[in-house]
Design a protein around this nucleic acid. Sequence first.
DNA 1: CTGGCCATTTAAAACGTTATAAATTCAGCA
DNA 2: TGCTGAATTTATAACGTTTTAAATGGCCAG
Lengths: 354, 354
Amino acid sequence: MADPSKPAHAEDSGSAAKRGKPTLRTIAEITGLAVTTVSRALSDAPQISLDTRKRVREVADEIGYSPDRAAQRLKTGRTNVIGVLLDPHEEILGYGTSIMSGIAKALQGTAYHLIVMPNFLNSTNVEAVNYITRNAMADGLIFSRTEPLDPRVRLLSDLGFPFVTHGRTELSTPHPYVDYDNFTFSYQATKRLIAKGRRKPALISGPAGFTFAGHLQHGFMTAVREAGCAYEILSGIDLDSPAGAIRDRVRQRYAEPDPPDSFMCGGEVCALATITGMSDCGLTLGREYDIVAKQTSHLLSAIQPQVETIYEDLTATGEDMGRVLLQRIGGESDVSRLQLLLCPQIPSSFDAAG
Amino acid sequence: MADPSKPAHAEDSGSAAKRGKPTLRTIAEITGLAVTTVSRALSDAPQISLDTRKRVREVADEIGYSPDRAAQRLKTGRTNVIGVLLDPHEEILGYGTSIMSGIAKALQGTAYHLIVMPNFLNSTNVEAVNYITRNAMADGLIFSRTEPLDPRVRLLSDLGFPFVTHGRTELSTPHPYVDYDNFTFSYQATKRLIAKGRRKPALISGPAGFTFAGHLQHGFMTAVREAGCAYEILSGIDLDSPAGAIRDRVRQRYAEPDPPDSFMCGGEVCALATITGMSDCGLTLGREYDIVAKQTSHLLSAIQPQVETIYEDLTATGEDMGRVLLQRIGGESDVSRLQLLLCPQIPSSFDAAG
DNA sequence: CTGGCCATTTAAAACGTTATAAATTCAGCA
DNA sequence: TGCTGAATTTATAACGTTTTAAATGGCCAG
């Protein structure tokens, strides 16, 4: 029925002042001013008299004017859009939700829109970045899961395109980031296991290649070395593995000699899967073994309240990333002011001897 | 450093043929044709000779031309963007991921971009819809969690703005949708509980106000009435409740007289929370009680393989929605061809007597 | 009353694309 | 030769905005 090639609400043009979406021209005709003046007035240029500015604003509000973003974009080259690159797996247990709602909060009240670009097709994330910059689809980019020599970071740095990452890199050129201190998290979590009397903690490590995996491992190793105890890094699985794979691996490990007696889990799904695997072997959490996990949602604590957790506030992270990116776009060139390392809040119960 | 107001890769204009992003004009200068001709040639207009079309395409490819979407958009009014409205809670257990990757698949190879518009700020979803249509931010819209008299559907229908919903409404004006047959799901799931010998199934219903909640309840009621058995609809919680609330409610219910002996759970988190609550009461799944749940990810089957499930393929749903929306934008006005009701696949084990 | 300066407003051009209508070329034919 | 019409190409305008440079008018010093 309705012709989709034209906005359906564009009614037939009436008399002189044509109907349809109001533009600067509409306001100009109503006020008797020139289009230029109206444009200037709406952007509060000091060269336009206060009277005029006020009158224009009133008329604009009255007729419900809102600027055509396509035209602004064509003219200025600015899109007023912040893009978030979303990996397929990132939606699990609210990662994406939390981050996004944080960013949205930071962008509230600004001219910027948040747009999520799901990256389900371009096999590599770099292609997506390339595409977005080449087609000027956004003024700034946010993405996560950085690698030590992240090619996206490299590309964007070269282009001078504003971005913030969730996670650090090891590139020599510094860049804006917001990161969680996974070293400290892992160190404290492992220390907690040891404080509870465990003598062989196991780490289910982050997926190989990502910067945070190194941090997790480093924190873990530091704690076990300090304690001088045995340890194990479970091979064959990581935090990205499906729950079933983690469960099976844990089960299998317990059929072999000299199994670990506790687990440092970097995520809730990982913890749940571990518990299931152990339970299949007849082992009980808190009795035969312990777990400390990172918590980012409320699922784990509802299902398995016995698991001790350290919380990572992803919404706050998102908000920080939004703020940092806005500063960057706004011209802040001192990168050191655009790097945030968020500290884990260690529960006070951790202080008590296990 | 880099001035963010201009694309950083726009170098200073060289000699005659200025550098920077190639435009139609660049191609025109190279080939000696008029800009109009180039535009036509690239859109494969039949009025342009085959020779010319081929030559223009070659040059375009060579210099890496890609059209400026802002300009196209300004001129044509078309955005080449499909928007997905994402509710905050929808990311749980991969709902959003699956849907989005499906849509992305359907859009692959078309001129359309998928853009996710997280709706974390506008309290009501209608405001977001209003905003998107008024500002012509997309050519079509996809959203879920429809209500019987959904105001978004009403608004978009009035405007003639193309959209597809995940879920049906009870509005008299028919509209494109893709929906899962929650009646059949709920009916079969409940029948399965009864076939296993349970005599008082409980329903944890969908959140009040959404169309699918009615379907779930209807299927449940049909099954219990057919069997003539007792039943219960658990009050105070629904599928949107946090896991902790569901767990507590289940536990609490078992402290009261005449508790249910089985559960129809419309989601995995719901099932997990129920199991936890029951387990806190010392009750074992498969012995003292049973659960049938809807499965949309692989978490539940990894953590609690004993739970019988019926699968809903959300990626397929997304793909269908993408296809339907494209047809709608393409001018398909026969709405009945744009309505899909997807049937639950009932596991063959359901046929065996419990 | 002229010239100059300030404050304010304006006309014209531009961003890159597409739509409309017109121009050009050339073959066929009277 | 000149006309018609088909095939191909083109000039011009337009989408709504911002930018650049220029115009207008008022006021004051000379």
